[in-house]
């Protein structure tokens, strides 16, 4: 259903036009009523019909909204199923790798090479540390996004280092917002890291938990954004990378504003700081 009326702002524009036309009809009828300065049965019927027509337009608008809700929900479920499938694939791969490691260690131990087996185990431990940390993340969308992003960036020669110091129990963002915020930030960081042409291109993703909020840091090994550019990076359409760019960070800021979160860039540490308030369970 790509390009469907239920996507983007098309439905909103349609509803606004529809309601505006109805409002114009209402005001026009009242103005006629005013200048006629009489209320006979026909005037009453016309006024009532136009008034009831507005209420019917509202019912239609709410029906459209509900339909859009179903559509969005089904899209979210399709996405979540896709994420789950990808996560399952990742787990299958990890299981396969784990069995291979066990076999290798079994071989080393059988040959009496205990020292080598210990060294091998340490290597395995460090390489699986990041995935181990990811398993602590309670939000399946963020977990899958980070897993997939790590693999995708590895393919581009970029090491995504993940440090998560929270299990994100009170992190309750819409899946679409999670994708918008973190995909844009990580992709930007990857582009910046590639620009530097270092021997090791690295992007670091950190999660810290505070009393009332979570702090997400995205740091890259690329050059810092110059001061004059940094002050404009959240402006819609502003980009130093060419035409049709410069919409990612404004979208990040917009998605965060909807959950009372904030994003800021610190040029000294080359870090994008994202603050997202904890969503506490309500007690009534």
């Amino acid at each position: 259903m790509s390009g469907s009326v239920f996507e983007s702002g098309q439905m909103h524009r349609l509803a606004v036009i529809f309601l505006s036309v109805n409002l114009l009809m209402l005001i026009g009828t009242r103005a006629l009523n005013y200048y006629n300065n009489q209320t006979n049965l026909m005037d009453l019927l016309l006024s009532s019909a136009i008034g009831i027509n507005f209420f019917m337009a509202l019912v239609f608008y709410s029906w459209l909204l509900r339909f859009q809700g179903f559509y969005t929900e089904s899209q979210t479920q399709i996405n979540s199923l896709r994420y789950m499938e990808e996560a399952l694939d990742t787990m299958r791969g990890e299981r396969h790798e784990f069995i291979n490691h066990l076999r290798a260690m079994q071989g080393l131990i059988a040959e009496g090479k205990g020292q080598e087996a210990t060294g091998y185990l340490k290597n395995v431990e460090s390489s699986t540390l990041a995935n181990g940390q990811l398993l602590n993340v309670n939000n399946p969308y963020l977990r899958s996004l980070l897993k997939n992003k790590k693999q995708a960036l590895l393919g581009q020669g970029i090491e995504l280092t993940i440090s998560i110091k929270s299990n994100l129990d009170f992190f309750d963002l819409q899946p679409v917002a999670i994708t918008t915020i973190f995909t844009n930030l990580l992709d930007n960081a990857a582009e910046a890291a590639k620009l530097a042409n270092n021997e090791v291109n690295e992007v670091r993703f950190e999660v810290h938990e505070f009393e009332n909020y979570y702090c997400f840091l995205v740091i890259d090994s690329g050059p810092p954004i110059p001061q004059e550019t940094a002050s404009r990076i959240f402006e819609s359409g502003f980009s130093t990378k060419g035409d049709d760019r410069g919409y990612g960070l404004p979208l990040v800021r917009q998605a965060l504003a909807e959950c009372r979160g904030k994003v800021a860039y610190d040029p000294d540490t080359k870090t994008f700081n994202v603050i997202i308030p904890k969503q506490m369970p309500r007690i009534d």
Binding site: R30, S47, G51, F54
Partner: peptide, 10 residues
Amino acid sequence: IGVLVALESV
């Protein structure tokens, strides 16, 4: 505003 004018109209 629409609801206000619609209620007035009726």
